[in-house]
Simulated assay, not measured.
Amino acid sequence: MIAIAIPLIFAVVVAAISITMRGRGAAEPPRPDTGPLAVVPVDAPDAAGPECTILLAALPADLSGAGGTLHERPLADPAPPGVRAWAAAPQPVVLRCGLPRPVELTPTAALLEVNGVRWLKLDDGVPDPDVASYVAVDRPVYVVLTAPLDAGSGPLQQVSDLVRNSLPATEVKVR
């Protein structure tokens, strides 16, 4: 009797632990919102210009992200010119074209080069940010890409390729 009871109790304990661990296992990642995105209008004097028109036309419907494909997200009306978005969690990936020169672009600003495009990473002052924003600073218009850190480097790399192929390189203007 004991020879049967001990393996049976052991099997029940192992099953209970397995069920408990499965319940506590890695939580399913949050699903990105795919509905229309309300985008706050900002000063973007060149957003409707020819450079932004060319870049926006070259942008794909999907971007690659660390968790898979990021699908284009529609913009809520009224949508400001020069903006595109892709569904990602916890925040969408948002591209804005035609913004003014960032005040953070100084002679000592550290620039990051990705696939032939020079980017300035903006610091929003949040200790543990969920998103990162980058400004392409070596093109005739300023392009800002904001993406959640969980999306990985795919969106920045793909957008860099499109910026490089769509807009001619210019000298970085730090003043």
Rank of each mutant, 00 (worst) to 15 (best):
A47H: 07
G152L: 08
D46T: 15
A136I: 07
T170N: 04
P50S: 08
A26I: 14
R24Q: 13
E171S: 09
A110F: 08
S133G: 14
P80S: 04
A27Q: 14
L99W: 11
L8P: 05
R31K: 12
A89M: 02
M21Y: 12
V13P: 14
E171Q: 06
V93R: 08
A58S: 10
A132V: 11
A15S: 05
D128S: 11
A76F: 13
L112H: 13
S133Q: 14
G49L: 07
P41Q: 06
L95S: 03
P7E: 11
V141R: 02
L105V: 08
V135A: 10
R22D: 04
P129D: 06
Q158C: 06
V135L: 12
D43L: 10
G82R: 03
Q158E: 07
L111H: 00
D77N: 12
A47Y: 02
G152F: 03
D150H: 08
D138V: 03
P100I: 06
I17V: 04
S153I: 15
R24D: 15
E104G: 13
V12G: 10
R175W: 14
R164V: 05
T108A: 10
A88L: 04
A5Y: 05
C52T: 05
L105F: 05
L149G: 02
T108R: 04
D43H: 12
A85W: 07
P78S: 03
M21C: 05
R175M: 12
A57D: 05
D43W: 11
V14Q: 11
